[in-house]
Design a protein around this nucleic acid. Structure first.
Lengths: 227, 227
DNA sequence: CGCATGATGTACGAACTGGTTAGTTCTGTC
DNA sequence: GACAGAACTAACCAGTTCGTACATCATGCG
């Protein structure tokens, strides 16, 4: 391993005047293009030359900022997680009654997955790699650790109030919601081609969304609470 | 270098006058190794040289039988689909009352996915490629066309008998079951690493399986029919 | 037998790809 | 305004990778 960026050892003397070319801008530009390419083509499928060509910077800059291809991939993966988790933080279910809170959470999760296909693809790609890069990233694990807090809180509130069944595992619940929201985006290509009917298409996705919510609510609520 | 002694070389009775050593055997051997490599590394990640090295045959034979890398990948994809669909054909729910039939179908689907990780990975990989190879394969589409018949039949029977709710779309139902069974395998790596708890591990998978069945049944059945 | 034909191995090469070398341009500082 | 060092580039390099040309071998048939 080589010397880490000296820029980190000596923070950029950025005070006052508009500093240098555009360190952060270049880095971001590279990262954005790289994210697109990795999400589209996978780790081994993406080409450094292609990324460099589409960048405002040069190929050498990629190695300058990210060391190697894997470093760039990891940065893209971290960025993808960061982006969606930041988006998720916008969901606020406090104050809502448990059933409404859960409904809102499922709808939000569904929509959020739906509108972040690039993230879904990165997660798929990372799973193909057995999560080995996620493993190397403390950042990502920290980022996700609390992804379950929300649903856990809603569930325990619902149990307290007697509207949710006892004995469910919040982690499993989170898992089930994720499954129903993730698959829709991840397997859209094969599913729609096989059945000749695209459930994730704009005109059908609403029905599916409603049924996913329905499925989760029927699963969690006590029977007599639902019509 | 394997000059098999001639006693071994007598497999297929070559009709039509053309002779052969073990045409079908060689083909299968290549295909099996290739399937492993593609499932493990993806289309761009897999290496023809590596596949050839692990094969009993030579690299030349791969091109002889499969033309190019994409041809080999497509053959591996088709084979993966063929294998699981053949396995699925073993499920027989005729005669069972609808609720039991659906339970059996979900359990079977869950287990089947669980025990065919290689297939799941191929489907993931194919989705990464936007289903473009599946698109080229009439074989696969034909193979899958009736994958939905079973659940559709069970559902309509259940509605007739008054135990299932009316108005659900069998295709959507199939989709929901698939989601709950697929995700478990496909996202195992990232999910378990993030939450430090592997829901798909042998000791936990039973609980999850039961809850998936439960979720589907609660969704489909009329309320008063379930405890 | 010997020739046509299909099956197989060996060796090689053109193009590609990740990564590096060597050098240039810009900027703040003294 | 000389200097140090950061930001940046073009050209290159070494190893890889898909694919092929060609020789070879086995067998059936005339």
């Amino acid at each position: 391993m080589k010397l880490k960026d000296k820029s980190e050892i000596r923070p950029t003397p950025n005070r006052g005047g508009t500093r240098n070319y555009d360190r952060e801008g270049t880095r971001r530009n590279i990262l954005e293009i790289a994210s697109e390419e990795f999400a589209l083509n996978g780790l081994s499928g993406a080409r450094i030359d292609e990324i460099a060509a589409r960048t405002r910077a040069s190929k050498r800059m990629i190695y300058y900022y990210f060391n190697d291809k894997e470093g760039l991939y990891l940065a893209a993966l971290e960025d993808a997680y960061r982006l969606v988790r930041e988006g998720e933080a916008k969901l606020d279910t406090r104050g809502l009654p448990p059933i409404e809170a859960l409904r809102k959470l499922v709808e939000f999760t569904f929509d959020h997955h739906q509108s972040h296909e690039e993230f879904i693809r990165m997660v798929m790609i990372e799973n193909i790699h057995h999560g080995e890069y996620l493993d190397r990233s403390r950042v990502i694990r920290d980022l996700n650790a609390r992804a379950i807090d929300n649903i856990a809180e809603i569930y325990s509130r619902g149990v307290e109030e007697g509207v949710f069944r006892k004995g469910l595992d919040p982690l499993e619940l989170h898992w089930q919601v994720s499954a129903l929201c993730f698959f829709n985006v991840s397997n859209r290509a094969t599913f729609s081609k096989i059945f000749g009917h695209d459930l994730s298409a704009a005109e059908n996705v609403g029905a599916l969304r409603g049924n996913v919510v329905d499925m989760v609510l029927r699963y969690v609520t006590c029977n007599e609470k639902l019509g």
